[in-house]
Design a protein around this nucleic acid. Structure first.
Lengths: 194, 194
DNA sequence: ACCTGAACACCGTTCAAGT
DNA sequence: ACCTGAACACCGTTCAAGT
């Protein structure tokens, strides 16, 4: 590691750009994430960014990859495979809830990143350990992933005219309920209550 | 019905604008749907549209509502509640597969439309008929809806490094598999194979 | 009343010119 | 080499002026 004085490093770099862009996305959403704004907050000219990133699209891809790479690892010290899966996906949901814009980028799928490979691998392993066939494990993985994505992306569940939201339809417990039910269906439903 | 000569009607109207915008979205995607382009294809000036729609956002809302209102009704003549639910949601999936851009607008959720009220009502009825409590039916509805949305919105399921896609991971059968598993988990899994 | 060209304030991206 | 202001081709939206 090289020594570095205090204060802002004075040269531009891809990492500095991505870090600043992530800050903007977290604070103000994806809509506020313009090339000009990133440059402005870095105290540099707009055109300078194009030395380090090829495109706004590529920048979004780097951002999403960054968030995907930080997806949680499966919980250690939990024996039951179903319980471990539940906790792992619940943690993944919490992670994306903190960076919902990343889910949007990933869903758009322009930039197929490798950041989530560890997560996907661990989830597939857990599903096979839980007894799924090599055919079914990827199907189950995609079902879980799409359920998660839908929960993150969908701001209003689209059926709110019927009943007033019971106590408060909080997104986390909503996903937890759906997740357990899907795992029941996928793993063969040992004991169908919770 | 009033008589009308052949050729393009010469006055602008909200319906004509929405219809043309829907055509553009279906043919070229949401990105190509600009106010200027709609105006151009209607042979009118850009500014004229603002007499009939308040906003580009409002136009998108009208479009999504239009698609939501055309969601399929539940199949008649199917006795088994689970089977009727399966067919209904599979049909809804097919519907959105034809207009994926509409799912994106609905997910963004700026414009909470009423077009899907019939669909939501029917689905909730079917879930309660299938034996769910008034507490669980809306949860199950949201789970199904979010699963559907995730499947439509997610172009690349994000775990494609492991295995080569078996014969061809066709989206429809992928959703069908996930849907049946979720219904198994939600309805209590009568017979867990298919 | 209804329509519209031109203008305004934004984008992402490029490029010649600076150091 | 690395950076950049100015320009280009787009946006959505507004408004004074037309009929």
């Amino acid at each position: 590691m090289t020594l570095r004085g205090p204060g802002r490093p004075r040269t531009l770099s891809r990492d500095r750009i991505v870090a600043e862009a992530r800050r903007i996305a977290d604070e103000e959403g994806l809509g506020a994430l313009t090339v000009r704004r990133v440059a402005q907050r870095l105290g540099t000219g707009q055109a300078s960014l194009y030395r380090h990133i090829t495109d706004r699209g590529a920048l979004l891809g780097l951002l999403a990859d960054d968030v995907a790479a930080r997806l949680p690892r499966p919980a250690d010290g939990v024996d039951d495979a179903r319980e471990r899966l539940t906790r792992h996906w619940l943690a993944a949901h919490d992670h994306f809830l903190r960076h919902p814009w990343a889910a949007r980028i990933i869903a758009d799928g322009e930039h197929l990143a490798h950041g989530a490979d560890d997560f996907a691998g661990a989830a597939l392993d857990a599903l096979e350990t839980a007894g799924l066939s090599p055919d079914d494990a990827p199907r189950a993985y995609r079902a879980l992933w799409n359920l998660l994505l839908g929960h993150i992306l969908n701001t209003h569940p689209l059926g709110h005219t019927r009943t007033p939201p019971p106590p408060a339809p909080d997104e986390r417990s909503d996903f937890a309920w759906a997740l357990r039910r899907l795992l029941d269906g996928v793993l063969g439903a040992g004991d169908v209550r919770n």
